[in-house]
């Protein structure tokens, strides 16, 4: 089974480091190129919207950020399964590296949404179903990151976070459903609906390119984060080894002196 064995090789942290070192420059270059094209398209090619004017350009970062906020959570959940079922150290690392990236993009989504809402709706924030669900997602990211920081031992932290992430993934549809219900119950007086007109191709292309650019960027950041996390664990275990050796050395020295 050559496929399986190559996958197994990749799962070895040292192999992963080698691969990451080779892959990252390409990923970074690809992300930069796509971002350049996407920014050009969204600023100079996409026409202003007939209703929203130039403000619609915020969409080209807002929507990809929202997509990545969800995408990184799915990534974390898949890694959480890897942690709990196969107890694989690389899954722990993938889980940990994904959290801050997902939180950052969710944050970008919230703030750009707010900056878009102010000129369009006349208010920075509406308790609209979508905004509220994203806010809860952001809170869950913050909780996960807080749990990572609270447990010292990386292996134990990974398993605890994995349980929390999976409980969260079961709850996300329930939260979405309940927030939808809640927001139809408290329908605000006059809210500009974003989902009114279908999107025109002249705006769809810049949006797709930007979404792809953000995705490649997030994958590059994730790989870089995983590489850093592996190195951090190495440094940590080496420090522990050194401390142990120094301890033992001090003891034998003390024994010899006695």
């Amino acid at each position: 089974m050559p496929r399986l064995s190559s996958l197994w090789n990749l799962a070895n942290p040292t192999r992963f480091l080698g691969l990451a070192d080779r892959l990252l420059p390409w990923l970074a270059a690809l992300a930069a190129a796509l971002l350049a094209v996407g920014l050009y398209l969204s600023f100079f090619v996409a026409p202003p919207d007939y209703q929203q004017g130039e403000t619609v350009r915020i969409m080209f970062i807002h929507v990809p950020a929202a997509w990545l906020g969800l995408f990184m959570y799915v990534m974390m959940s898949a890694s959480a399964l890897g942690t709990l079922v196969w107890r694989h150290p690389l899954a722990d690392v993938a889980q940990k590296a994904a959290a801050p990236i997902g939180a950052a993009f969710t944050f970008v989504c919230l703030v750009t949404g707010s900056l878009w809402g102010k000129p369009m709706w006349g208010t920075w924030w509406v308790w609209d179903a979508r905004l509220t669900s994203v806010l809860v997602l952001f809170l869950m990211y913050l909780g996960i990151m807080a749990l990572w920081r609270a447990v010292d031992d990386p292996g134990r932290a990974a398993r605890a976070v994995a349980v929390l992430t999976l409980v969260g993934v079961v709850n996300i549809p329930i939260i979405k459903f309940s927030v939808d219900w809640w927001s139809t119950l408290h329908q605000p007086a006059a809210v500009f609906r974003i989902d009114g007109p279908t999107i025109h191709p002249s705006m769809l292309w810049p949006l797709l390119v930007m979404a792809l650019a953000f995705t490649v960027l997030a994958v590059a950041l994730h790989v870089a984060g995983m590489r850093n996390e592996i190195l951090r664990r190495r440094v940590r275990s080496l420090w522990l080894m050194e401390a142990e050796r120094l301890d033992a050395g001090a003891e034998t020295a003390a024994g010899a002196a006695r």
């Binding site: 809860v136 909780g143 807080a146 609270a150 929390l164 409980v167 329930i174 939260i175 219900w181 809640w182």
Partner: peptide, 30 residues
Amino acid sequence: VGAALTASLGRGGLLLAILVMPLMVPTLIF
């Protein structure tokens, strides 16, 4: 769930609330 996650930490009170409150949103709503 939050209590179990923070059981061995010794200083879990605030962390527990942070972990658990987003999950309580649906219950509160309904």
